[in-house]
Simulated assay, not measured.
Amino acid sequence: MMCTRFIAGTAGVVVSMALALAPPASAQSADGPGTVTNLAELTGRFRVAGAATAERMTYWSRGPRGPMLSTGAVYLPPGPPPPGGWPMVAYAHGTTGIADQCAFTSEPRTYYLNSLYPQLLEAGYAVVISDYVGLGTPGTHPYLDGPSQARSLIDGVRAAKAIAPALGTRWAVLGQSQGAHAALFTAHLAPADAPELSLRGAAATGAPANLDLALPLAGPWIPRLPLDRTTAYLAMLLAGLRASAPELDVDGYLTPTGLDALRVVESECVEQANARLADVSIGAMLAKPLDDPALVAAAAAMLRIPTDGYTVPLFIGQGLADAQVPAPLTAKLIAELRLSGTDLEAHVYRGDHIGTVDEAQPDVMTFLRRVLGPVQ
């Protein structure tokens, strides 16, 4: 591993009763962000070794155009909570797809349940997971919409505190890939958005950075690229943008092949969608360039990771062999964060997009201990 560090400047108490069902997400909810509408115990393959309690919750959050529901999960460490309550790590997951059945907590995810979550619990951190708005809940998931995914995480922490009095206010956010993008937006938004909580830092591996710069260059001339899943990723992004900003007429940019690609990603999870779209180039999807100023501005608001204005420390990990998030894009992000004076710890690893997760984990745990402080 190569590493550079830049710096400027009563346990397990959970309400187990089912709460009232939520109104349709299309309605304006009278309940505030983080209001829990349903709660159920997680059993069987969803259990985590070392977790005193495991609960799946549905709660109100905020999508691109107003209130939306999200689901998530909460795992508490065993034993009595420390003074002030258990600190939390909000885990922001990577891309699963945008169809409802792709919600992260709806299928057991072995790596996280058997490896990552037990490490966090053993360290004394409660684990809070968000599926993000529109995944398994009404509406289309706005894929890579950084602000709404950040609010899903923030409101998930609010919801966790509402159902688990043993939780404190200290928390950090950890994310991979799509979740890394969401984690960095969370670090930027949460201190002002949720001042009642004490966000201490954000760790991100494989963050898709600077994608907004590439979008206006896309058009019918783009061939198949030597990267993984690019067609599926673009189709998911455009499907989410079509749902959240219908005035942009996303369909008007698409060929029949492109319209079919959006139907695929709206009905299948990312692995299956990628298999069906593996031989489809981005150019074959597009009838004209994606360079309309209104479209470019809307995409930038979703995609562009802020490069200044952070008040909490950041950790960024990048794999040199990453074929989904190329290292040069992350290098630009790191350089801009460094120039802005952000408290930044940056690590470069030799692995690919997924391999970097394991390589980075010891450094991530060290970072979390640094920002969250001791668990008494």
Rank of each mutant, 00 (worst) to 15 (best):
P313W: 14
V348A: 10
E336I: 01
A321V: 06
L314Y: 08
L337G: 01
I354H: 02
D343E: 15
L303I: 07
K332I: 14
D308W: 11
R338L: 00
A331R: 13
L314H: 05
D291G: 11
P326I: 13
G317E: 08
M302N: 08
T311K: 12
D291E: 05
G351A: 15
G317P: 05
G317L: 06
G341M: 09
E345Y: 12
K332E: 11
D343A: 15
A301C: 00
P326R: 10
A335T: 13
D322F: 08
L320R: 14
A294C: 00
R350C: 05
I316R: 01
F315W: 14
E336D: 14
A335V: 08
L295S: 03
L337M: 13
A301H: 11
T330H: 04
A331C: 01
T342S: 12
R304I: 05
E345T: 15
D322M: 08
G355T: 12
T307S: 06
G355Y: 03
V312H: 10
P313L: 13
E345L: 06
D343G: 07
K332D: 10
G309H: 14
A299I: 08
D343P: 01
I305S: 02
G317S: 12
T356H: 06
A294D: 12
P313R: 10
A294H: 05
A323G: 00
R338A: 09
A346N: 10
R304Q: 12
A299T: 02
P326W: 04
A321G: 06
G351C: 08
A346T: 07
A294V: 00
A301L: 11
G309C: 10
E336F: 01
A298Q: 02
F315L: 15
L329D: 06
G341C: 11
A327C: 03
P306D: 09
A331E: 13
F315E: 00
A294M: 01
E336S: 09
D343N: 15
D322R: 06
G351N: 14
A299W: 06
P306G: 05
T307A: 04
V312A: 02
A323I: 05
D352T: 06
T311H: 11
I305T: 02
I354G: 02
A346Y: 15
A294I: 00
P293Q: 10
A301Y: 02
M302G: 01
I305L: 13
G317A: 15
Q324N: 08
I316S: 08
F315A: 03
A299D: 00
V312L: 09
E336T: 09
M302A: 14
G319V: 10
L333I: 04
L333G: 03
T307I: 13
P293S: 06
D352K: 04
A294S: 11
Y310W: 12
I334V: 15
V296M: 03
G341K: 07
L295Y: 04
D291W: 08
S340D: 05
V348Y: 07
E336Y: 01
G355F: 05
A331Y: 05
A327H: 10
G317M: 07
I316N: 04
L314D: 00
T356M: 13
R350K: 04
P306Q: 11
P313Y: 14
G317R: 09
I334E: 02
A323V: 13
V348H: 07
D322C: 12
Q318M: 08
T342N: 02
T342Y: 00
Q324M: 14
R304H: 00
R350A: 15
D292K: 11
I334K: 02
M302Q: 04
A346P: 09
H347S: 12
L339D: 03
I334P: 00
V312T: 11
D352M: 05
